[in-house]
Design a protein around this nucleic acid. Structure first.
Lengths: 119, 119
DNA sequence: TCGATAGTTAAGTAGATGCTTAACCAATCG
DNA sequence: CGATTGGTTAAGCATCTACTTAACTATCGA
């Protein structure tokens, strides 16, 4: 596993788990304590804690402990980092399709093959 | 691991690996054969094949075998599925912030506590 | 101060993941 | 035909992951 772009990597890894996505979705509706988050989930508290560690490591979630209760909230725009990565990929993809479309429209006789990725 | 929303799940899982993201990025610049994809990657061909299996299972990548050469291309808008999931989360998040902002602007005396997630 | 509540830490485990090497098959090419 | 090229399959292995239970700490409330 080669690890460039650690930020996107940690983010996507964090979101790749259904349980963690559920936590993110719940926090999207407002802050919650650890046990509030754990309540609807079909697993032990320590398991939830471990998911929270992954989420805070990727900085999607921030937590704040007051007495003995830790409150979790969504970090402002960490989802934007992933959104940006995706947007960038889609853009180069669409640009490529446009170029390809122009080339095909320009001329009806594709003399030098169909492999536009060369040149 | 509870598995709802299998589509987003498979997609995010596929994208959570750096090697697979590299493959997606390369295919964004145009179709490529299996060995063209494998060439820049520091691993064996079978390993690349396994990554391709994950990518095709999530349907980000489609492949087409002609003689003995298999050509891979990006599937039109599977990244959009992930983008949509993220967009939805961001939207509820921002709506919540707006509601919260209105409430705070409306009145300066927060008599009934700071826990806006109730009610 | 005692007990319940909220969370934390540690250690162990079954199964998934990301690789490897060693065959193997099928389409070209000389 | 026989060798090469491009890909595929199978098996094995080290590591990571998502849990578990048990034990422990710290705060709060009576």
């Amino acid at each position: 596993m080669l690890n460039q772009s650690g930020d996107v990597d940690r983010l996507l890894h964090a979101l790749a788990d259904p349980t963690r996505r559920r936590i993110v979705e719940q926090l999207g509706r407002g802050p919650a304590t650890v046990s509030e988050l754990a309540a609807p989930l079909p697993m032990s508290l320590p398991a939830v804690l471990q998911h929270l560690q992954v989420l805070t490591a990727s900085r999607i979630v921030a937590t704040d402990k007051v007495g003995r209760v830790r409150t979790c909230r969504l970090e402002p725009d960490r989802l934007g980092v992933v959104a940006d990565w995706i947007a960038a990929r889609r853009q180069t993809w669409e640009r490529r399709l446009n170029r390809l479309g122009e080339i095909l429209a320009q001329d009806d006789s594709p003399a030098t093959g169909t492999r536009e990725s060369e040149t």
